[in-house]
Design a protein around this nucleic acid. Structure first.
Lengths: 193, 193
DNA sequence: TTATTTTTGTAATGATTGATACATAAATAA
DNA sequence: TTATTTATGTATCAATCATTACAAAAATAA
């Protein structure tokens, strides 16, 4: 292949940009912030991402979506997928202070982008709905197996869990404290049993 | 009193500014946006609020806090405060599309301001904690009265409700639909009984 | 070598940001 | 009336915004 070799890999720019977006959100992150974080100057930046800031944000969000897809794979190989989901919630309590304050970039995006950018907002909403659907399906199957006694509709319980996820996104910032969060998470998970 | 009479009342500027902040958040709202919404030019604006944009945002948030204080008064005069709280949650489902998308300005602020402005973030967190405490106290008293059977600690149930409130803040944007929200709210309120 | 291609770094773009300067308007007090 | 005070409207500020322009760098192909 011809041309000057690439120093700043697309994937690396996205990763570094994601870190900044995750903390500061979309509007409060400047191109200057991104250039500092990625090391890439304006030349490389716009050569790689013609769509500029917005394209990189979209890709940072989609990058996060991959983590979810990967979790979905774990689920399908698991013997007790519900326990996997519960353990995932439980693991949140153990995160460090900074992770608590960062929260979930997808949930953050829904809140920030609602009247600002419809594309960014709706793609974040879609991801949350996919996660919700995953919750719902696992619950439905465990109800059939009889592992879950509650007869509440799986669609309601799936929405309950995604609501919890989004609520936890703020509770973590109010109380970035393992002990507080641990008790809350156990209490809310007990509803699904 | 001497001097040219005031056209743009402080309280009116704050109200109009709050509408914009509520929709667009802090960072994405420009002084130009505020001037259009309030009618006040830069002269009046900075004459009234020496602290500029940030001071007005603080006051818009505190203005919202008054709505909460007023609800607290209703509560203390009520014979069944828990039912009042539940009805408040139930009323959320009936809001119109735009209100759903706006969500709660306090919860929004916690998410947006975390790494941006510590003053604004922590004052929003404090308000959420006050609301949580109100929940907790009502639950505690109803447990003593025997109206609530659940023996779960009132502190846990209070945090459960504030977590629900913040989760609903995002669920409403995913499903700005009365029927969907109604069922979810009933399901989550049923936990406190 | 030379031509071609791609990336990089830097300088500049015009627009917008939040905030200030300041003259004028419009009231009251003396 | 005249002096004083306060609010308003407009012009302007430097800083920053996202983006573009473009020449130099650094590789391969011919």
């Amino acid at each position: 292949m011809r041309g000057r070799p690439t120093i700043y890999e697309d994937s690396n720019i996205i990763k570094k940009a994601q870190e900044v977006f995750w903390q500061k959100g979309y509007s409060a992150t400047s191109l200057s912030d991104l250039q500092k974080a990625t090391g890439a100057g304006a030349g490389s930046f716009y050569n790689t991402f013609k769509g500029g800031k917005k394209e990189v944000f979209q890709k940072a969000v989609q990058e996060r979506r991959l983590a979810f897809t990967s979790f979905q794979n774990e689920l399908s190989n698991s013997e007790s997928p519900l326990e996997l989901i519960k353990d995932f919630f439980r693991s949140i309590a153990k995160a460090d202070q900074n992770e608590h304050l960062k929260g979930c970039i997808i949930a953050n995006t829904v809140v920030e982008m609602t009247f600002i950018d419809e594309d960014l907002e709706s793609s974040a909403v879609q991801i949350l709905k996919e996660v919700e659907q995953m919750f719902t399906e696992v619950i439905k199957s465990e109800q059939l197996k009889g592992t879950i006694k509650t007869k509440t509709a799986p669609e309601i319980l799936g929405k309950y869990l995604i609501t919890f996820w989004c609520g936890l996104n703020t509770l973590r910032r109010m109380y970035p404290d393992e002990n507080v969060l641990k008790d809350q998470i156990e209490m809310q998970l007990a509803v699904i049993s």
